[in-house]
Each structure stands twice: as C-alpha cells, then as structure tokens.
Computed example of a mutant assay.
Amino acid sequence: MAMSVVQLESHDAENIENVDNFLDKTESKRASAYVEEIHPRNWRRILAESLRKNFPGWPDATLEVLCAAARMQSHFDSTLIYAKGEIGASLLLVISGSLELSIGNVEGKRVVMNYIPPMEISNIVPVMDGAPIAHDYRTHGKTVLAYIPKTIFLQQLVNSPQLMSSVVTMLCQRNRQLQDYASYLSLASFRSKLAARLLYLGGKYGRTRQDGQNGIDIDIKLSQENLASLLVASRQSIGKELRWLAEKNIVAIEYNKVTIFDWQALERLSAV
C-alpha cells in the first residue's frame, strides 16, 4: 500500500502553527504545495463534524473515542490508499480533497465508479464484513484523509449494539442509491448520463464562482479523461457532448475544470 509521508496525529492538530512543522523535512517544500487550503488545526473539528453527519444520534462520548483514535494524513494526487483485494484496516473519511473509487483490468483500463467528497465516510463494508476490498481507493487531487481503526470502530458497536441501527440505515440508503443509479443507466441516453453526472458532481463539489460571475464551479479536477472514466466512454464522445453543452451556454469548459451556468437545463437533459 503506497502512501505519502505527510502525516499528523489528530490530537496534535490544534497545536500546529505552520504546515511545515509537521511535514517531513526532506519533502517539506515539495509537499506544502499540495496541502489543501484547510489548515491542519481545523482537521480535528472537521473530523468531529463529519462523524456526527455520518453517524447521527451517536453519543458524543463514542464519537470522541473515534476522533481520538483517528490518524490524519495528507496525500499527494493519485496516491494509492487501498488496492483491490487488500483487507482494509481502517474506515476512511475525507477531510478535504477527494477519494476516487475505481476498478481496472490487466490491460490498464480503469473505470471510475465514484469520487467521494469531503465529510463522507467510506470503506465501511470491508470493515464490517472483513472481506477484501472490491476496488481501488486512490486520491484525486491533494487530499487529507482520516483513518479510523477498524478495531476501535467495531468495539463501539460491541459496547453499544443499538448503534448498529444507524450503520444499517446508512448501508441501506447507499444500496438504494446504487440500485436507482443502475436502473437509470439502463434507460438514459449518453447525453442524459453526462448531465446527471455533472449535476451530481455540482451538488457534491459545487461552489459559487469567486470572480462574482454567475455560475457554479465544480471544485474538483475534472478532465475529459476523468469524465470518460466515470461514464465508461471515449474522450471523443465526452468532448463532443461538452462542446454541445458549451455552445448552448449550459456549461463552460476550461482546463480540468467545468462550470455550470444553467442547472435547470442539465436537470431537463438528465430526465429519462
């Protein structure tokens, strides 16, 4: 399992005055350019908020145990966190950046299943059932992750079995979303699929443009190759559809960046 060396224990985060204080000296200058805008002293706060969001109703004392056990780590782009077939030793929670879920074959072709946004927890199924991971986890852009040890998480469920209800609810919701999306893919046109993906990414990563102009920037590195991997399509097909959307002033396309101008138009296009 390949990882970068930028590492910080969560209980030390609030004492950090400068990013370089916790970077390995040999990589300090190189790594500091990749560290997310969120200051390390805020990582612990974001972790606590994220745990409350993912496990609503859990007692504060239980969440504090998970926070105290979490290991925080900053990664460079395209860092392999877990490979398919590994036994994941931790829950993964995105503090900033994004986590790519993908599968590949021996010929090197890779299909991206999803990009996991900040404050969302992942790898929960392998942690619960102990089976090997079914896909690769790889960072997408500069990313900070919280690693919550499997043993600590499972011990909380043993100590308080009633907490399992919220975990089951989460898994059911995610399974329903997967079923709905699979049904959608079987019926939608390619243009509809692209519109739906842009809406999803805009909902997860969208933010108002900082230049004061109208539109929503999808704040994640998003090349034509990335979209092609998400939709299992060729770059040529993606490029053709993006140009059509741009001509209609529905989106704007820049290098590795998409801006949505007409959300309602995308919603109409995504309908089946």
Rank of each mutant, 00 (worst) to 15 (best):
M1P: 11
S4L: 09
S4F: 10
S4A: 12
L8P: 10
L8F: 01
L8V: 02
D12I: 08
D12M: 14
D12K: 09
E14D: 15
E14G: 10
N15H: 10
I16T: 00
V19L: 10
F22C: 08
F22R: 01
T26Y: 11
K29I: 06
A31C: 09
S32D: 08
E36I: 11
E37Y: 13
P40Y: 00
P40S: 03
R45F: 15
R45A: 12
I46N: 04
L47G: 02
E49T: 10
S50D: 03
S50T: 05
L51C: 02
L51H: 04
R52D: 06
R52H: 04
K53M: 12
N54I: 03
F55A: 00
P56Y: 04
G57V: 07
P59Q: 05
P59L: 06
A61N: 14
A61C: 07
C67V: 07
A70F: 04
T79A: 09
L80T: 02
Y82C: 07
K84L: 03
G85Y: 03
G85P: 00
G85A: 04
E86A: 08
E86R: 07
A89G: 15
L91G: 04
I95A: 04
S98A: 10
E100M: 10
S102N: 05
I103S: 12
V106E: 11
V112H: 09
Y115K: 04
Y115A: 01
Y115M: 00
I116K: 09
M119R: 12
S122T: 04
I124V: 15
V125I: 08
V127I: 12
M128G: 10
A131L: 14
A131F: 11
I133F: 03
A134E: 13
H135T: 05
R138E: 10
H140W: 04
G141D: 02
G141F: 03
K142A: 13
K142P: 15
A146M: 02
Y147R: 06
Y147F: 11
Q156C: 01
L157Q: 05
N159W: 09
S160C: 14
P161W: 00
P161Y: 01
Q162G: 03
L163M: 05
T169F: 08
L178D: 12
L178F: 12
Q179H: 11
D180Y: 10
Y181R: 15
S183M: 14
Y184M: 05
A196L: 11
L198A: 07
Y200R: 14
Y200M: 11
G206Q: 04
R209D: 07
G212E: 02
G215S: 08
I216L: 07
D217C: 06
D217V: 10
K221P: 07
E225T: 14
E225D: 15
N226F: 08
A228M: 07
L230N: 02
L230K: 03
V232Q: 14
V232G: 10
V232W: 09
A233I: 01
R235N: 11
S237L: 04
E241W: 03
E241H: 05
W244E: 14
W244F: 08
L245S: 08
N249I: 06
I250H: 06
I250Y: 00
E254C: 10
E254T: 11
Y255L: 14
T259Y: 03
T259N: 02
W263M: 04
A265G: 06
L266K: 00
L266H: 01
R268N: 14
R268F: 13
L269Q: 02
S270Q: 05
A271W: 10
A271D: 14
